[in-house]
């Protein structure tokens, strides 16, 4: 599956591994690419009683391009879900602005698809009705089904739903089932299909696979990767699992807070771009684990000063284990204070 993937343009032809000019070149190409999501100097904090405030996020600025698969990584409570809720429009930043698909996010609307960890399907609707809900409601609001064109549209959407169902590896016979009759993995497949039915270019996923058992999780990860590679939507995927992050993403952003202090919010601790096919890292046991450990160290609030050392380690392992061509560029190293 992975071998058939084409290398994306932005990394194609670039010299590998951490050269200064490579970083510069990436920056240039990036500037030309369409900005799908832009997060400008966003901070979030909540009042904690009289004077105290609890800071969740501090001065986050990110630009996410069209077609990127961004994984937000970090330990529990680091604000990654908060960031995703702000992308959705469910929460508003205390400071700064967030734009998705070219306009500021003010409220939850249909510009992004959403796959949460739980309650991702409407329990009162069959799988088929869940899939058809998006396209039908967007054209026919509450009393819209009284319009004559509704039934024709419904037929078309129904066919599309069955196509999507097959695409997700589900049986047509599952269409009539209610969510509670499906396993957790199947539910999430349907949830992804439900979001894809809307054909929007941004997909936001919040710990979407975290409640699944390891083997189901693996197959869903592969499915998501392949679905993504077909139409290349922008995906922002929140997880606390480093292996999942490295496997799925083309870009991994680690959020971490510098101290346990409430007044101190999370910052971008690490922002790195991987070439496609991070998956093959898996076969390179020890080196992969090193990287994982490293990122975990970072996300646990560790400093990044030793990153250059790691980079060397990666360089080395790349050279003698065929990692070259897979791990692309350490695009940018998060600031340290």
């Amino acid at each position: 599956m992975v071998s058939s993937m084409s290398t994306p343009e932005i990394t194609a032809g670039l010299p590998l591994f951490g050269e200064e000019r490579a970083v510069r070149a990436v920056a240039e190409v990036e500037a030309q690419a369409a900005k799908s999501i832009s997060i400008e100097d966003v901070s979030v904090s909540y009042a904690l009683g009289r004077a105290a405030r609890r800071s969740v996020l501090e001065n986050i600025s990110l630009e996410i391009e069209e077609g990127e698969f961004v994984v937000l990584l970090g330990e529990t409570g680091c604000g990654k879900s908060t960031l995703l809720r702000m992308l959705l429009g469910q929460e508003r930043p205390t400071e700064g602005t967030i734009s998705v698909a070219g306009s500021k996010v003010e409220r939850v609307d249909a510009r992004s698809g959403y796959v949460p960890q739980r309650y991702s399907l409407f329990p009162d609707r069959t799988v088929l009705d869940n899939l058809m809900m998006g396209p039908l409601t967007s054209n026919y609001h509450i009393l819209g089904r009284l319009r004559p064109s509704f039934w024709g549209a419904r037929r078309a959407v129904r066919e599309e739903a069955f196509r999507q169902l097959a695409h997700m590896g589900l049986q047509a016979s599952d269409a009539g089932k209610y969510p509670h009759q499906l396993s957790g993995g199947m539910q999430q497949r349907v949830a992804i299909a439900q979001a894809l039915m809307m054909k929007n270019r941004v997909l936001l996923m919040d710990e979407a696979f975290s409640a699944l058992d390891p083997s189901t999780r693996g197959s869903l990860q592969r499915l998501l990767r392949s679905v993504w590679s077909e139409t290349r939507p922008t995906v922002v995927f929140v997880t606390h699992n480093t292996a999942e992050a490295l496997f799925l993403g083309t870009r991994v952003i680690v959020l971490a807070r510098e101290s346990k202090d409430d007044a101190c919010g999370s910052r971008v601790a690490l922002d790195m771009k991987l070439a496609e096919g991070g998956m093959t890292l898996r076969s390179h046991g020890q080196e992969f684990l090193d990287l994982v450990e490293h990122i975990e160290a970072v996300s646990n609030g560790g400093r990044l000063t030793d990153l250059s050392g790691r980079r060397t380690a990666l360089d080395r392992c790349g050279e003698d284990s065929g990692l070259a061509g897979r791990v692309g560029v350490f695009h940018e190293v998060g600031e340290t204070r």
């Binding site: 249909a110 698809g113 949460p116 309650y119 991702s120 409407f122 409601t137 609001h141 509450i142 979001a195």
Partner: peptide, 15 residues
């Protein structure tokens, strides 16, 4: 999640 999901599926308030 259900309410957010519905809004991302282009439902309006009454939907």
């Amino acid at each position: 999640e259900q309410i957010v999901k519905a809004f991302t599926l282009d439902a309006n308030n009454f939907d």
